[in-house]
Design a binder for these strands. Structure first.
Lengths: 149, 149
DNA sequence: GCGGTTCGCCTGTCCGGACAGGGAGGTCGA
DNA sequence: TCGACCTCCCTGTCCGGACAGGCGAACCGC
């Protein structure tokens, strides 16, 4: 309980580490690394996407997305094709082989969710979502537009 | 919008990214990288520590701590000396030069805290701490002991 | 004293995340 | 048409985080 200044920041940092650690462990069984599952889930749900869309919709850095997609491609989970409508863009789509992953990825995600919200009632989970969303929005407001200051 | 399954997990991942992004930006002004400030603050507050203590008290991986301390040492912010009581251990202590950093690091941390909790009343901040702590504890319970009898 | 175990730290490797910079493809206006 | 500008993507570099493996020092039982 060495919580002194910066309690909330401290708590966020700690939570982030615990989350990442467990996510790493659970997703390993599915053959993915944390972050990749978000991409795959998004593609499975919404179909082929440009990298730009993925970045915007998942809130990721474009450089990170490039390499994540490259690794997923090398692993055989996604396919990349040039966008016929825009020579600059790359369309990313899940391979048919990737569908075999879906169940285990979803199970890992469910387990992760379970672990995080263990012993919580519905109202508490809603509370979590509200708090997390609020914090993220606050940080995004401050960090998302460095044009000020 | 794309929140369906794993809402809480998703929210945690998003929050973690926003947090890291802003922390990176704010701490850059102080000359540190996210994670290093936790070490420095801890050392300033509690004095010389073994790496093992730092790992335990900050919840960090020992390999990460090794490299973080090495970088802080190279940057001139900490000094390392062998523990006279235990030849295996390394004592890490803040250098006198590092104290010049303290104010700006604390300011950055305060700004980060401010950004996260902007517009919140005391009760809401307490709410945040409770929720974050609960989530972290849940994840730690599940992930901290992957194989315990 | 000696050997086995534990502890503390280091290194290598892989990943995501962030930033900077660059290059090829579109867009739009002069 | 042509050139300035923007968009989309890639690469390089640095960091923290996680895991596996290794090495030496300390500890413990004998």
């Amino acid at each position: 309980m060495a919580d002194q200044t910066g309690s909330v920041s401290h708590a966020i940092a700690g939570l982030a580490r615990q989350y990442r650690a467990l996510a790493t462990r659970l997703l390993r069984e599915a053959g993915l690394h944390p972050g990749q599952e978000l991409v795959m889930m998004h593609l499975w749900d919404h179909g082929p996407r440009r990298q730009t869309c993925l970045c915007a919709e998942l809130g990721a850095d474009s450089a990170t997305m490039t390499r994540t997609v490259q690794r997923l491609e090398k692993a055989g989970f996604v396919r990349r094709a040039p966008d016929p409508c825009d020579g600059r863009a790359t369309l990313v789509e899940p391979t048919t082989a990737s569908h075999a992953l879906r169940l285990s990825v979803e199970r890992s995600c469910a387990e992760l969710e379970e672990a995080a919200t263990a012993g919580m009632k519905a109202a508490e989970r809603a509370d979590c979502l509200r708090v997390l969303g609020r914090l993220e929005a606050n940080l995004a407001t401050r960090g998302g537009k460095p044009d000020r200051d």
